Simulated assay, not measured.
Amino acid sequence: MILEIVSPEATLFHGEVTSVSLPGVDGSFQILNNHAPIVSILKQGVVKITAANFKFHKEVADKFTKVNDQNYTLAIQSGTIEMKDNKVIVLAD
């Protein structure tokens, strides 16, 4: 599935991922390939991204923390998420 993470300043990430875990207001949840459509509000926490390979723009690479070769995290203050047609869009602060 495609993940796009957008902040007010820039697009932080756009690429193919295996899964994404998000800090929802009612608890953390994970989205996998072919997940049902969903819209949710996010709270302060960590977005966990799993993918076969990561490509970041140099300007935003320092916002991500590498866990291992296939996992990165991104701290957010709040945001929203929409999953539809195998595309996840995260609007993050």
Rank of each mutant, 00 (worst) to 15 (best):
E9A: 14
A10L: 13
A10Q: 15
L12I: 06
L12W: 15
H14E: 12
E16H: 14
E16A: 14
V17H: 09
T18Y: 00
S19Q: 10
V20K: 02
S21V: 08
S21W: 10
L22A: 07
L22E: 12
G24I: 07
G27Q: 03
S28V: 01
F29E: 08
Q30E: 06
I31Y: 02
I31C: 02
L32S: 02
N34D: 10
A36I: 12
A36T: 06
A36R: 15
A36K: 14
A36W: 03
I38E: 00
V39F: 05
S40W: 02
K43Q: 14
K43D: 11
G45D: 11
G45Y: 06
G45S: 09
V47N: 04
K48S: 15
K48P: 06
K48H: 11
I49H: 03
I49C: 07
T50L: 12
A51P: 12
A52T: 01
N53M: 10
N53P: 07
F54T: 11
H57R: 09
H57G: 05
K58G: 06
E59D: 05
V60F: 10
V60C: 13
K63R: 15
F64V: 10
F64D: 11
F64K: 10
T65W: 05
T65H: 10
T65F: 11
K66F: 04
V67H: 08
V67I: 13
N68T: 02
N68C: 02
N71L: 09
Y72S: 04
T73S: 00
T73A: 04
T73E: 00
A75I: 13
I76N: 02
Q77A: 09
Q77M: 09
